[in-house]
Design a protein around this nucleic acid. Sequence first.
DNA 1: CGGACCATTGATAATTGTCAAAATTCGTGG
DNA 2: CCACGAATTTTGACAATTATCAATGGTCCG
Lengths: 241, 241
Amino acid sequence: MLKCMECGDESCLKKVPLFSSLGDDELEKLAHRMTFKNYDKGQDILSQGKAPGGITIICRGRAKAYRLTANGTEKILYIFARHDYIGEQYLFVNKAAAYTVTALQNVSAAFFSTKQFREILNLYPAISLRLIEELGRRTISLENILQTGGMRKTEARIAAMLSDFVRKYGVFGKDGIEISLPLSREGMANYLGMARETLSRKLSAFEKEGVIRSLSNKKIVILRPDILRKSAEDETDAYSR
Amino acid sequence: MLKCMECGDESCLKKVPLFSSLGDDELEKLAHRMTFKNYDKGQDILSQGKAPGGITIICRGRAKAYRLTANGTEKILYIFARHDYIGEQYLFVNKAAAYTVTALQNVSAAFFSTKQFREILNLYPAISLRLIEELGRRTISLENILQTGGMRKTEARIAAMLSDFVRKYGVFGKDGIEISLPLSREGMANYLGMARETLSRKLSAFEKEGVIRSLSNKKIVILRPDILRKSAEDETDAYSR
DNA sequence: CGGACCATTGATAATTGTCAAAATTCGTGG
DNA sequence: CCACGAATTTTGACAATTATCAATGGTCCG
């Protein structure tokens, strides 16, 4: 039986979209061509300036991808979570990674070297098509982020991020949807490209309006996801005055 | 001999990265599985909300990709030029296009339906790998745009856009690099996510500093590409005061 | 040459960033 | 479990930047 010793999850690879079309025996073969890696909180999974050398798939934990700007602050590009790919865009593009990926928690991950992965593509051509599909999705998702990032109203950007968090990390609680935030306020502000203080003020405003409730620095409850979604869609934010 | 009747260019498909590895006879076969399409200036190549239905490769002309926001303004995502792909991310993702692509000039293009293109992938598996590579490049390029878009200083974003234009459309002239701009000031402002007037003022400032010279509404000369590149790299823009 | 469209400039209002201080939260050790 | 110090966050006041509105000046094309 295929069991992931690292993350404790039965057939954890099967849940990765890229491999979902494979049978159990094929997954078994896959398992021979990869290595499990563990990263402590704060450790780098990928380093800006170094070639990724392969694909990493997260089994457990979260990580942030960021670039260092000239003035020393970091601009966060992605938050990676379980079943996300890291470095897949460099599989056939021999370039240095443009960002660093650092574990936000302890992370376990499956790693395929470029060589191993190309072998797998030869073995199972169906995975090529699947990879094309996944890269297409990634592109589409980036295009979405690009647009929300281009929105002028800061409230709209914040609302878009929170709505995204609801989708990815939301858990139903008794008062609303609980989110265990992957980033600190400072991290979220960097992700959104605004000052920490601005984010703070806007979140306080959302709280006064009854849209969210802050439980702690790392946990908030979304009381009115509908209002959030609405102000994320709308450039002309109806809920700020 | 393989000759593109539409754009007048000999072996124009050969210059498309996706097909660069193919021989002349293979290109010949390819030509049987596609249609040439012509679009007048202002015509839509792709429509927001409709499935792309295939891949379009531009042979001649430029086009803009944009989304309509709730308040009616358009947010421009891409400028497509010769040899760029349109809709390749939807090849295996059956979704409606998230943006409209409109011809900025008269455009001629090669079109492969999804069905045709999948046949081609079956026929030439090497193209799959090439497509993975191209999608990877697109992802990397989007990640770059995402970062420059996240830069707080407007001067830096403008400088990044102009540097990009230098790479794509720049022609050496006697005083510097001449650029025939693909967009109006309003278009560029939408692309950069700022007000038309702000862009105007910053461009005037660049002109006063001797970095650029405006020849007409659609043509500028870059006198100091080095300064431009520097202020695009730097969050802490050294050339504004 | 004229008219429509586009771009620039000026003045002002709104928004956001910055700096400093106060308040809260977090983790650790008692 | 509580207390304490460190780190993080929130808030306030002010400065800087950008958006908006309005008027002027240019450019393009018949």
